[in-house]
Simulated assay, not measured.
Amino acid sequence: MANSSGFSMTLPILDSKNYDRWRNHMKAIFGFQEVLEIVQKGYQEIGDGATEAQRAMYNEAKKKDCKALFLIYQGVDAANYEKINGVETAKQAWEISEKSYEGADKIKKVKLQNLRREYEVLQMEETDSIADYMTKILTLSNQMRSCGKAMKEKSIVEKVLRTLTCKYDHIVVAIEESKNLEELKIEELQASLQAHELRIKGRSSSRGTDQVLMSRHNKKNSENWNQKTKDKGQNSR
């Protein structure tokens, strides 16, 4: 889909599992298309005695609402389309989607409890890269935020530092001693850890190369020694 400026835009599609991400993406798209206020607040109908200026404003609002409703229709799958089919305004369609997926407070609390339990037991696996593990941490953190949990950056930084594998112990100690964890940004932490990860990989690769060269050297010496032994045996006959 392209707008009047030629900017190509792919709409996210709402299904049964991605409401939080879909909502955030759609809000950004509504803002870009200048229809977010219409979606959130709707517009006022006008009476028969409205002035020309009022009619002009109404027609503009109606046009924006149709545009927003079109975006919503285009951004849902077949099951979700049936929930909003027949609504008259974008505000009504948006509210139906919110009620369908955000649910009651009790549902949010149960979801948050499950996410919190998963977050608390999460540990870095030996097979995880720093980028993989940070993605796991941030995904859970964002899901908890969407359920109303306040997630401070410091608590996420501390969670990462205490759940890394033991090969990162040295860099964790260095970070804790040299950085103010109250001010340390998640992206700064990730950059430091990834730099350390690259050094570890570089050393492992160097050791592997040294071992291969040493093995070849020992094999060659062994072959030379065996050949000399064989030559001596033949000369002694």
Rank of each mutant, 00 (worst) to 15 (best):
M134H: 05
N114E: 09
I171C: 04
S129P: 07
I84K: 13
A50L: 06
Y58D: 08
H217M: 09
A131S: 14
K185F: 07
I175Y: 01
I29S: 01
A93Y: 01
R216T: 03
E118S: 14
K106G: 12
T163C: 10
K154L: 05
L69F: 08
N85C: 11
R55D: 04
I175S: 00
G148T: 04
S178N: 13
K220W: 05
M124W: 08
D105S: 09
K159I: 01
S4R: 07
K219A: 13
S205K: 14
M134E: 01
A90D: 04
P12E: 05
Y168H: 07
N224E: 15
K62V: 06
Q54K: 12
G42I: 04
M57N: 15
N80K: 09
R199L: 14
N221W: 08
T209K: 15
N235S: 04
L115A: 07
Y81V: 00
K220R: 13
N114V: 05
G47L: 09
L14T: 03
D128K: 07
E60W: 00
S141I: 09
W225C: 06
L36F: 06
D105V: 09
K109R: 14
S222T: 03
L69S: 02
R145N: 04
G6H: 02
T135I: 04
E125T: 02
G148Q: 05
I200V: 12
E125I: 03
E126N: 13
A50Y: 08
S215I: 00
N226R: 10
T89L: 06
D132K: 14
G86F: 08
S4A: 12
K185V: 02
N18C: 10
C147Q: 14
R207P: 02
E153A: 10
C66P: 00
M214W: 07
S205E: 15
G148V: 02
D48L: 11
E158L: 02
A90N: 01
E82G: 03
A174Q: 15
V121H: 13
I130H: 02
T127H: 12
G6M: 04
L198M: 14
R21G: 03
T165Q: 11
H170A: 12
E102I: 12
T51C: 10
Q92P: 07
E45D: 15
L181V: 01
L164C: 02
S155Y: 12
G103W: 08
G75T: 04
Y168T: 05
Q74A: 13
A104Q: 13
A131F: 05
R216K: 15
E125N: 10
T89G: 09
M9N: 01
I29Y: 10
